[in-house]
Each structure stands twice: as C-alpha cells, then as structure tokens.
C-alpha cells in the first residue's frame, strides 16, 4: 500500500480515538502508544474501534482472530488488519 494512504488511514483512526473514545481534544496519541494497557482507553471501546478500523481499511476483520494485544496500539491494529483482514464484499 502507498505510504501516504496508510498515513492518512492511521491519522483517521487517531482522530477517531481522540474525538470519540477518549473525548478530550488535548490528548495526543501516537501510532505506537499503548492504549488499553496504559489505561488510556477502556477495553469495552474496542468493538467500536474494530468497526472503525474496518471502515477505514475497507477490510472485514474476523473478531475471533483478534486478541487483546493485537489492538493495543494503532500500529498493531493496522498490522492485525493486514494479517487477518479480508477485502470487503
């Protein structure tokens, strides 16, 4: 995938996390920052984050193949989408 497009997708997820999940605009999130293990986001938010990741990547991600550690940073989320995701029908 072209690097610019990936960078855009990463930014879309970060914006979503700041706006909809953390809900505080002053929070800065980087792609390699631990999210759940650091307590920044609650694991219960992961269902919505997974759905957002599907929208952004245009992939379908089988939830059963994803473990907690696979979603702990934005970089890991994209690596997981790459590993287990399938193109959307």
């Amino acid at each position: 995938m072209n690097g610019d497009k990936r960078a855009q997708q990463v930014q879309q997820i970060i914006d979503y996390l700041v706006r909809e999940v953390v809900g505080r605009s002053e929070v800065r999130i980087s792609a390699d920052m631990p999210l759940v293990s650091s307590g920044l986001i609650d694991s219960m938010a992961l269902v919505n984050i997974l759905l957002k990741l599907e929208d952004v990547t245009h992939m379908r991600i089988p939830a059963g193949k994803v473990q907690p550690k696979d979603m702990d940073t934005v970089d890991l989320m994209f690596a997981t989408a790459q590993r287990v995701g399938k193109p959307r029908k």
Binding site: V36, Q67, P68
Partner: peptide, 8 residues
C-alpha cells in the same frame, strides 16, 4: 477464552 475486548 480470551477475545480482543477483554481486559487482559
């Protein structure tokens, strides 16, 4: 069995 949304 653990899944992605459990708190480890």
């Amino acid at each position: 069995y653990p899944n992605f949304k459990v708190d480890p």
